[in-house]
Amino acid sequence: MARPSSKTDLLEAASSQYEQLQNLMASLTDIELTSPFDFSGDSKKKEAHWARDKNLRDVLIHLYEWHQLLLKWVAANQGGQSQTFLPAPYNWRTYGQMNMAFWEKHQTTPLEEARALFEESHQAVLDLAASFSNEQLFNKNVFDWVGGTSLGSYFVSATASHYDWAIKKLKAHRKKCGNIIRER
């Protein structure tokens, strides 16, 4: 997937990846939905998220919470309240701790609620992206609170790129479940 560099491409990529993720979720079997994620035996999966997320709910909540980061950040700064993308006390070196805090916060959130939160926040992010012009999204230095990158890059990261991450994780889980069934 080429990284979007225009408003049209952003909205298209976000919608396309969202649809692909929805289709994948709809195709999960009961075994795939109820089996906990376990990638501990795969030495290639070293990033913290492979151990953190234990099920579909955890993945959807992660996406939802990153949508919230984007929505709150844009709203605050547009409202004249200077705010960084990552809330204090987190920064780009410690955001893994923030992700873990999101995970812990939602351990009692039911899967269906996680789905609804994700679907609502996805639409809110798309609506917000649509409210900006192409130049506001993809020209650098349009908004001083964005820093040296473009606002659109944050939207791409919170949608299409993150959905791609989720799809890869769910496909890896599906493959692992298939291997377990074949071993029985």
Rank of each mutant, 00 (worst) to 15 (best):
G96L: 07
K72W: 11
S153P: 04
N139I: 03
V125R: 03
W66E: 01
L71W: 10
S161D: 12
L56W: 00
T84Q: 15
A75F: 03
A116K: 14
A114H: 06
V156I: 09
D127M: 14
A129Y: 03
R93G: 12
D127S: 15
Y154C: 00
K168D: 11
A129K: 00
L63E: 07
G79L: 03
T108V: 12
S133H: 06
A76Q: 06
S121H: 02
V74E: 05
Q97G: 14
M98E: 13
E113K: 10
L151G: 01
N141H: 15
L69M: 14
S157V: 08
W165C: 02
Q68M: 12
Y154T: 04
F85Y: 14
L117K: 13
Q107I: 09
G147F: 00
Q107T: 09
I167D: 01
G80V: 07
A116M: 14
A160P: 03
D144H: 00
V125G: 01
W92P: 03
E112L: 15
E113F: 07
K72E: 14
H122M: 01
K105C: 10
L151V: 10
A101I: 04
Q107R: 15
V74G: 03
H62N: 03
L128P: 07
V156K: 02
Q78R: 06
K72V: 11
N139Y: 12
R115A: 06
A114T: 09
K105A: 12
T159D: 11
N99R: 10
W165I: 02
N77W: 10
T84E: 15
M100P: 09
V156Q: 08
S82R: 15
E120K: 08
E113M: 10
Y90D: 05
F138R: 10
N134L: 08
E65C: 02
A101P: 11
L126H: 13
N141V: 02
V156P: 02
R115S: 04
I167N: 00
F138I: 05
Q123Y: 06
S131Y: 11
L86I: 04
T159L: 01
D127F: 06
Q81L: 13
A101N: 08
F102C: 11
L151F: 11
L117I: 07
I61N: 08
F85Q: 05
I61K: 07
T94Y: 04
V74Q: 01
W73N: 00
G148W: 04
S150A: 14
P110K: 02
L86G: 04
Q97A: 15
Q83R: 08
T149C: 07
T94H: 00
A88C: 11
V142P: 04
S121L: 00
N55Q: 08
S161H: 05
N55S: 14
A158Q: 03
N99H: 11
N141K: 15
Q78C: 01
F138K: 10
Q83D: 02
S121C: 02
N99Q: 08
S131C: 12
L151D: 05
K105Q: 12
L63F: 00
R57W: 12
A158H: 03
L63H: 12
W165M: 13
W92H: 13
A76S: 11
Q107V: 12
K105N: 13
W92C: 08
Y90T: 08
F102M: 08
E113Q: 13
N99E: 15
W145G: 03
A166M: 01
